[in-house]
Design a protein around this nucleic acid. Structure first.
Lengths: 212, 212
DNA sequence: AAGGTTGCTTACCATATGGTAAGTTTTGCG
DNA sequence: CGCAAAACTTACCATATGGTAAGCAACCTT
């Protein structure tokens, strides 16, 4: 019985890498299973379809992100500090789990009917996105600014945090290994600065506050 | 002779939408060509392979972005203002060309050997990325901070700017139509604020300046 | 030990994909 | 007109994909 769970976890790990690196469509069940040393049908025995395998991967990811978010919110502080701590933790998480940022972006970009997103059930990552947006709404800057403004900010900071680690391989190919590794270190070190800059920005000078 | 160029442009437009919405692997030559009302082989007659079609799409995108960037740099100003103007123009561009942000992110996330990226020639978007990073390096904040720090900033702001419009369809499915449309308006209105916040941030309080 | 459930395999299959080869219509032009 | 080049089609093809069906071996339970 333990060997089943073990196999499933192994498959999820491998599938996760594949989904992150090649996307949903680019991932082949055969390749995933052969990497573990089993047949494709062993995979289909555990996860009844490609979609369900994808969902399993995304559920794992969602759990990690939710856990990270709630951990950052545990101590009673102002929302700004909680956001700061979360995105720092997220940046660190991305360095330990290289597949996470690409998966996250992939899910957000996928068209609704494309992959696992689209059934009657809750879309993947929703359990993470909703409290994140809520946390943005709890800050002084977005309090009373409406849901859309907080959503904008959440997605923007998420994009800023995810793209660099997600593009790691590509950028390495473009600019070489050391500059990109250095860039990742810079990003990690400046993560809290980034959040502070966005959260405390008091957009007064330019195009407006966003209250359309 | 003009009908050839016409067909090619039509094919590129359709292919661009498909590549943006379903990714490289998820795009089928048959679907693209049937949408124009020709056969798959007509497509392969103009673009000798899927990779070359993808390259054509990305070349078009690169041209647009380069043009936008250089237009924002035309008037002799400080680099900060140029960046601001560029990202505002980029945000506006994304609303007129919905496929652009997803394509951009897709290219950056793709593993090197995956698609058109990987030959001996210059990777797609490189003609856009390099001057953009250079422009970041020209600002007071990143002057002398090294290439990696500017690269970090460029990718981060790019991520912040692209993710929301790229995720438009998905977010609409999650949160409804109006909030997302509103969010896009907010993002457009606050684009210059975002750039200013990042460019002028003087990360003094927290984890450091990034000089590891 | 009997028997069923579980983990996995071998054997298939329908379908779709990117791509080639060769033929046919259309177009431009001297 | 004549004819060649270009634009496109019909006909194929090898391959890979996700998925089904059925069988086999190990293990757990009674």
């Amino acid at each position: 019985m333990s060997s089943a769970k073990q196999t499933q976890n192994d498959l999820i790990d491998i599938a996760r890498r594949h989904f992150a690196e090649r996307g949903y469509q680019g991932t082949s069940l055969a390749q995933v299973s052969v990497e573990l040393g089993v047949t494709k049908q062993a995979l289909l025995h555990h996860f009844k379809s490609k979609d369900l395998l994808y969902r399993a991967v995304l559920d794992q990811l969602t759990q990690e992100l939710v856990q990270l978010l709630f951990a950052a919110m545990e101590e009673a502080e102002e929302a700004e500090r909680q956001l700061e701590r979360f995105f720092v933790a997220l940046s660190a998480h991305f360095q330990a789990h290289r597949s996470a940022p690409a998966l996250l972006i992939g899910v957000l970009i996928d068209a609704p009917g494309q992959a696992a997103v689209g059934g009657t059930d809750r879309p993947p990552l929703q359990d993470f996105l909703e409290p994140l947006v809520a946390l943005f709404q709890a800050t002084a800057r977005w309090q009373g600014a409406g849901f859309s403004a907080a959503l904008t900010a959440a997605i923007e900071v998420l994009g800023a945090t995810c793209l660099l680690p997600a593009a790691r391989g590509n950028l390495t190919h473009r600019f070489g290994c050391e500059p990109v590794e250095q860039a990742e270190r810079v990003a990690l070190a400046q993560a809290s600065d980034l959040v502070r800059a966005v959260v405390h920005a008091q957009g007064l000078g330019g195009a407006g506050q966003g209250n359309l």
